[in-house]
Design a protein around this nucleic acid. Structure first.
Lengths: 189, 189
DNA sequence: CTTAAAACTTAATCAAGTTCAAGAAAAGAC
DNA sequence: GTCTTTTCTTGAACTTGATTAAGTTTTAAG
């Protein structure tokens, strides 16, 4: 859980008391590969901070294919904010891509955390600001670059990551089919 | 400026004192069509709330073409969070698409606002949560639907909007060329 | 009212990526 | 270790949308 406190401390100042409050309100949890934190049609009940490992958020499209819309690794939060906030059934699955350790912030105690540690409100504002900017940047990548260019860019940024995830997950994340990814890779060799 | 207070009040509770503080810190401003709030290579100095009118955020791609990455209308905020927060030169232009009225939150007084009205920190957290969810949803639209489907969806959601903006701006926002938009429209008639 | 600039249309050609289908390789389960 | 399931590959036919270039319409300016 020290990773979580370290991450928060990069954005806001925390007293020792704040740290204890955070640790008392959030839950440490181990998650096995392929386990779910959220399934389609369920209401999302928590925000999850990844201490170690990798998760993905995906949905099933009209053709019945899984489409990965987000990957999250160490030091990222993953949730469905829309379902979490509106208490509405989610369209998404959140699944562990590999064995992982997480810190859980349950919706029912989220408000307690904000009132006891007001700095956390600021922390989430800053984290969301980054997430929003990254998401807009991703739209720009989709518009500006071809599938092959996006693959090259991704594999340069996260070379070790390529080994950890199945190609069909990466293909849908990058916005093309697994067959096309296969062809891109064939070209390199 | 009452529109701004009304919008904030939808997310958090404000006392009369809070309202006065907000009004004293934020600046009302009129903007003419085609005027800029931000230009490429400048550092973004404020977050802008649109009281009335329409703005767009765009960049110039390698081919020298303007690509509109965001539209913002009444009751939305527009800025470049990345430039604003990191104090780095922006890659974007923010321009009025039509005559507009805005409320300006200057970066230099933003912290004063948050310390005097802590509810604003929460308000921005909630606004950013929505903006982030909307941006991810947009990626999903790009992946799931064809250009024609995205145009139909947009024109059903914002029929009056189609009349207000030039087609080349909409085409780049939806992720295709003006020529292609022209073809889609020709098919309908 | 006239002219220039900005925005839009049309059509032919081309490239990027999908679909479908079949087979090969890797990874888990027993 | 073998069997089953999951993941990856290959190729042919097809679709969507980009590009280029010329012409038309609309808007704004003097």
């Amino acid at each position: 859980m020290q990773r979580l406190l370290a991450h928060i401390s990069k954005f806001v100042e925390l007293t020792e008391e704040d740290k204890e409050t955070i640790l008392s309100i959030m839950q440490y949890q181990q998650v096995k590969k392929k386990e779910y934190l959220l399934r389609q049609d369920a209401v999302c009940n928590a925000n999850y901070f990844i201490l170690k490992g990798c998760f993905r958020r995906y949905y099933i499209d009209e053709k019945g294919t899984e489409q990965t819309i987000q990957f999250a690794i160490d030091n990222w939060w993953i949730t469905d904010y829309d379902s979490l906030e509106r208490r509405a059934p989610s369209e998404y699955f959140i699944q562990a891509v590999e064995n992982a350790e997480i810190a859980v912030l349950d919706k029912r105690v989220q408000e307690d955390l904000f009132s006891q540690v007001p700095a956390m409100e600021r922390y989430f504002r800053l984290v969301l600001q980054r997430a929003y900017a990254a998401s807009v940047q991703r739209i720009r990548y989709i518009y500006d670059f071809s599938g092959e260019e996006r693959y090259n860019h991704f594999s340069n940024l996260f070379p070790e990551f390529l080994q950890r995830i199945p190609q069909y997950m990466l293909a849908s994340y990058l916005g093309f089919t697994p067959e096309f990814l296969s062809k891109i890779r064939a070209k390199k060799i």
